[in-house]
Design a binder for these strands. Structure first.
Lengths: 346, 346
DNA sequence: CCGCTCCACTCAATCCTTTTACTAAATCGG
DNA sequence: CCGATTTAGTAAAAGGATTGAGTGGAGCGG
């Protein structure tokens, strides 16, 4: 019956109801350190007034005064297209939430003018920081405008800059994969790597070689191929490796897709996994790796952790204006053990 | 040398530089309809001042005055976990961007208290609307607090409410899949459906039956099974269907995962796709369907479009406070034709 | 040349919190 | 009992845009 007050209650209304000044309400609500001088009864009256009016602070007004938005911007090239994007976003959002921040996502489609516009857009909203992410790990030259706020680079790095970067520990991932096969007893391990020019491929190769070295196995270049991450290239390279002379007894593939291609090649050759050939993939693309037959042992990219960690550095450590000393933080790529690895034949 | 002005320029500074009042600057910037009375030269001076100072309006201040945030909230249960989440978010963000809005994402993990908290959080930021999404299509009871703003339901519906809903056209999807097989000449079509209780399963079954009816094929309950969307249940049901009496010549599976399971069953039985058995999947989970062998014909869930459309209705049509008349908008699920369908044997 | 309408803007109030500077009353040490 | 602190608050300014109400001058009809 009473006319519904359509607009939300303001702090002044709360103050009036509680019989105090807006200042007091503000102090109580934010429980400001200086508010220890406010008595328990007053505090309660304020709390009660807040509850009964359903008061929530107006974020715009607060932001105007404090110059903070409690919001993080998440700007990426194409990450939102990739199947793992959700995980990264979720990681970043989870940490943000812990710190009472919200996450605003923007994807630029890789268009530099869109990147610029996105940064301007979130800057206009006084975001407290920006996570600038790339779809695959690589070197980037972030737009200058990024320097106008705190920022952390996710899945990319800018040598010579002072941004903090968060990327997967690819070298270690390559080492882990290789070590799993070495531990199973393999000595001739084929490596179907990704495009030789990418960061991931270079690092994984380092990891592969290091694992061999650490185990006293000599490196044979003929066992290493560069594929393009797609299923058919995995198929082709696996076939070539396995039909060559003195074929490998195990394959480490730099993507689950290529590993699936390798699966087909192995089947076609009348061989069986892991009895005749062991396989380790990379990515842990759930659908592919887990539902393969047999379920595939693979190395997982830490998507969620990348997002979570980037948000954490942004809110915790990154000093303003990119003065982060250019540290690169590597996040571990854990192994997911399934059924595609066994001892070598004989 | 000059002390770097660290804080961003304000409208007053622009006004002073251009030799006009802040009002004028405001009118020019927003090119307000009432600003047609502002002369071209003045307009240019303002624009020039804006450029030279690198001025960007303070969003908080504007929001405070206008009671708008130009921000949409995207609240979901677990959607961000699902592999397709990125697409939905991207769709919503793309449309928001077109309308000069930003998208803030929140995922609740399905926890009702978290749902409530999320809504309160974005409400505190005066979002212009909320997209409330579910991971799989189902009926929901949205929290009451959602009524305090405009909202659109994505991938879910609330019967009896007045929210606009945007969901995939599952019945039509089921019909399409079945029709593809009928068109290829099949008359005994096995249907490995999902959990019988879900919206998707019920609707797809309706579509399946309607397609049969439209083509004068009688419905045989023995050909319909309920799986659990996972690979192994597809495997089991396919095996049972194909080894039974008078087996189907084609299988329609309600998920790509089950279809992959069916693939294995078919292989095990020494049959070949599509020569002996045709298969149609559902979801178009890229990795699974496209890299299967042979590549799988499937029905695509319109994730991007769902997000895009939800944002569109939110910004265009949805009147405040859920007064949307409870319309449910169905988004088409297009077929993706690959190589797993052919004519029946003989 | 008077009054009126337009034109091209400007003034000042407003949105809602936070924060600095202050004050009145109570307490305390000596 | 005095002056100094502490307690428990308050008043008012500030933060940066938008907007309703106004203003001074030019142009125009009569």
């Amino acid at each position: 019956m009473a006319a519904e007050k359509t607009s939300r209650p303001t702090m002044a209304q709360v103050a009036k109801l509680a019989g105090v000044s807006p200042t007091t309400v503000s102090l109580v609500i934010n429980d400001d350190p200086r508010a220890k001088s406010i008595s328990e009864p007053t505090r309660d009256r304020v709390a009660e007034a807040v509850r009964s009016l359903g008061y929530r602070p107006n974020h715009a007004a607060r932001g105007l005064r404090t110059q903070k938005s409690e919001t993080l911007g998440f700007i990426t090239d194409e990450i939102a297209t990739a199947p793992f994007a959700g995980d990264t976003i979720r990681g970043a959002q989870d940490y943000s939430w812990k710190r009472n921040h919200l996450l605003t996502v923007l994807n630029t489609g890789g268009d530099p003018s869109m990147e610029e516009a996105s940064i301007e857009m979130v800057l206009g909203r006084q975001v407290d920081g920006i996570i600038f992410g790339a779809m695959y790990t690589r070197e980037v030259a972030p737009p200058r405008s990024l320097e106008r706020t705190r920022a952390v680079l996710l899945n990319c790095y800018a040598p010579g800059s002072t941004y903090i970067s968060v990327i997967p520990a690819e070298k270690e991932g390559g080492r882990t994969a290789t070590q799993i096969l070495l531990d199973a007893g393999h000595r001739r391990i084929g490596f179907i790597n990704g495009l030789g020019t990418t960061y991931a491929a270079k690092e994984r190769l380092k990891g592969y070689r290091q694992a061999l070295r650490d185990n006293g196995v000599s490196y044979e270049p003929r066992l290493v191929r560069n594929g393009n991450y797609h299923s058919d290239s995995g198929h082709r390279h696996a076939r070539e490796l396995l039909t060559g002379e003195n074929p490998p007894t195990a394959l480490f593939c730099s993507s689950d897709r290529m590993a699936v291609g390798a699966y087909y090649a192995i089947m076609e050759l009348g061989l069986s996994i892991p009895r005749d050939v062991s396989v380790v993939g990379y990515d842990n693309q759930l659908e592919l790796a887990a539902y393969a037959s047999p379920p595939m042992t693979t190395i997982q990219l830490p998507h969620y952790e990348l997002g979570y960690t980037a948000a954490r550095y942004l809110l915790e450590d990154a000093p303003s204006n990119g003065q982060g000393g250019g540290t690169v933080h590597e996040i571990e790529c854990p192994a997911v053990i399934r059924d595609s690895v066994g001892p070598p034949p004989n």
